[in-house]
């Protein structure tokens, strides 16, 4: 049995984007805060802190979920992936990120990390989604800039590219 007393500060370690990450947390520390404030992984954003807006979405053991509804101590020994895991070593954007760029699926970018992580999980399970299915998953996110049309187009296009149905159109716009 693992027991951590109220206000006790304990060491928490897990795999973050393929590398071991460790820091100290109280039982009440949210994973979202632990990532940003303790580990400095600020790619994950924090919005509503009650699971509605979706911008804190990360993958835990390969499954998309809200880091604001998860305690840091709950991911001990598990595998966490954040938006920082997506681009390759030389900061080359992956297919999903390139499609977001191409289709103007973001403006201010605040909601983007969460949406990318949701679809990283979802497209892995359903490589050929319909527009309705994409909209259903997008229902778990709030974006105040784009009106969602660009997001839907980007996800459908990325899925096509990931299935190898279209050739990528050369290099993405210069970062």
């Amino acid at each position: 049995m693992r027991r951590i007393e109220r206000d006790e500060i304990v060491s928490v370690s897990f795999e973050l984007n393929g590398k071991r990450a460790a820091g100290t947390a109280q039982p009440r520390t949210l994973l979202s805060d632990f990532l940003r404030q303790t580990l400095g992984a600020t790619g994950t954003h924090v919005g509503c802190e009650h699971g509605v807006c979706g911008c804190c979405t990360v993958m835990i053991d390969g499954v998309a979920c809200r880091s604001c509804l998860t305690l840091a101590v709950q991911v001990e020994g598990r595998r966490v992936e954040t938006v920082e895991s997506l681009a390759g070593d030389e900061d080359r954007l992956n297919a999903l990120q390139r499609a977001f760029n191409k289709h103007h699926a973001l403006q201010c970018g605040f909601c983007t990390p969460g949406i990318l992580m949701s679809f990283t999980d979802y497209l892995g399970r359903n490589p050929k989604p319909s527009e309705d299915e994409v909209r259903e998953v997008l229902g778990g996110h709030i974006c105040r800039c784009t009106g969602y049309a660009g997001l839907v187009a980007a996800v459908l296009d990325a899925a096509r590219e990931m299935r190898g149905e279209t050739e990528p159109e050369g290099e993405p716009h210069a970062a």
Binding site: G54, T57, I60, V63, A64, C65
Partner: peptide, 8 residues
């Protein structure tokens, strides 16, 4: 809920 909340 949503896809993301059903996961947990």
């Amino acid at each position: 809920g949503h896809f993301q909340t059903r996961n947990r």
